[in-house]
Amino acid sequence: MGTMLKHPIDAIYYLKIGKRGSLLSAGIMIIVTFIIYMADILGRGFIFNQNSLSTLSPMLLSIIFFIILGLFIGGNYMVSTINDGEGTIKNIFVSVAYSMVPYMIMAPIAIVLSYVLTQNEAFLITLVWYIGILWSAALVILSILNVHNYTFKQTVKNVLLTLFFAIVALILVAILYLVWDKIIEFIGEVISEVEYRVQI
């Protein structure tokens, strides 16, 4: 984790060749990131927290987190196989997990600050949070560049195609959910109508 912050290119190389990191450690980091993400949304100080368990379902937040993560990793792997990327799905998963380190550090700081700062100092919380997000995003891009041995232009293309894939996949899932919901509703109405006719 320290190497990822100080020497990210070296860290990504070590992760790629398997000298550092593992699926287990990456999985633990994803779980820790998820816990911090939940605390970031639901656990901030009262002044800065507009969310609560009554308005946001932890199950829904969990689904959103893991679906987006899965779509990004899976989509990036599929896009990279088409565009001559060298990285395996394991390389992508591990490097993305380790790229979350800045967020894992900065988000808890933002949460703690939300309990001690006033509304007039809210910009400090926003600044700390954005540093963590943007730093992690930069590391993800750097990871994709080095894992797949891409140029910067190829990396930008890969990231944009991955995001496009994720958005299209989410839209398709939403459409399928709505269609399936209507089909279930229609079948239920047909069964109710048949039962009513039989009783008559």
Rank of each mutant, 00 (worst) to 15 (best):
D84I: 02
G87W: 12
L113N: 00
T81S: 08
W135T: 10
W135F: 04
K90S: 14
N49L: 06
V101G: 09
L117I: 02
L113R: 00
L139D: 14
L71R: 01
P58S: 01
N51D: 11
L124E: 07
F72N: 07
L127P: 00
E121C: 08
P108I: 11
Q119E: 06
K90D: 08
L142V: 15
G74S: 08
I89Q: 10
N49Y: 06
I64Q: 00
S62I: 03
I125F: 07
S99I: 08
G132K: 06
T118M: 04
G70P: 14
S52G: 15
A122E: 00
Y77D: 01
I73E: 03
Y115C: 09
G132C: 02
N51W: 02
L117A: 07
L127H: 05
G132F: 06
S95N: 14
L53H: 05
Q119D: 03
Y103P: 06
L69G: 10
L60E: 13
L127N: 05
L117D: 04
V79N: 08
Y77A: 05
P108Y: 11
V116K: 05
G74W: 09
I125S: 00
L69W: 15
I73M: 05
V128M: 11
I82Y: 12
L60G: 04
F93P: 00
G70I: 07
P58K: 07
V140E: 07
L113C: 12
L124Q: 06
S62K: 00
S136A: 09
A138K: 10
V112W: 10
I125R: 13
S80P: 04
F65L: 00
Y130A: 01
Y98V: 07
N83H: 09
S52T: 14
L127M: 10
M59F: 05
Q119S: 03
P58A: 10
L142I: 15
Y103E: 05
G70F: 09
I109A: 06
V140G: 05
I133R: 13
T126M: 01
E86F: 10
L142C: 13
N49W: 05
L117W: 05
I64N: 01
L56E: 11
P108W: 06
Y77R: 07
Y77M: 03
N120H: 07
Q119K: 07
I111E: 09
E86T: 12
Y98T: 00
S57H: 08
A138F: 15
G132A: 03
S99P: 01
M59E: 04
A122R: 03
I89E: 07
L61G: 12
G132V: 01
I92V: 08
M106I: 09
V128I: 06
I92Y: 13
T81W: 02
I67E: 02
L127A: 10
V101E: 12
T81P: 04
V101K: 13
E86M: 13
S52N: 13
S54R: 12
Y77G: 08
I92N: 14
Y130H: 03
I89K: 06
I141G: 14
D84A: 02
L61A: 10
L142E: 14
W129M: 01
P58T: 10
S54L: 13
D84S: 09
N91L: 06
A110D: 10
S52H: 12
N83Q: 04
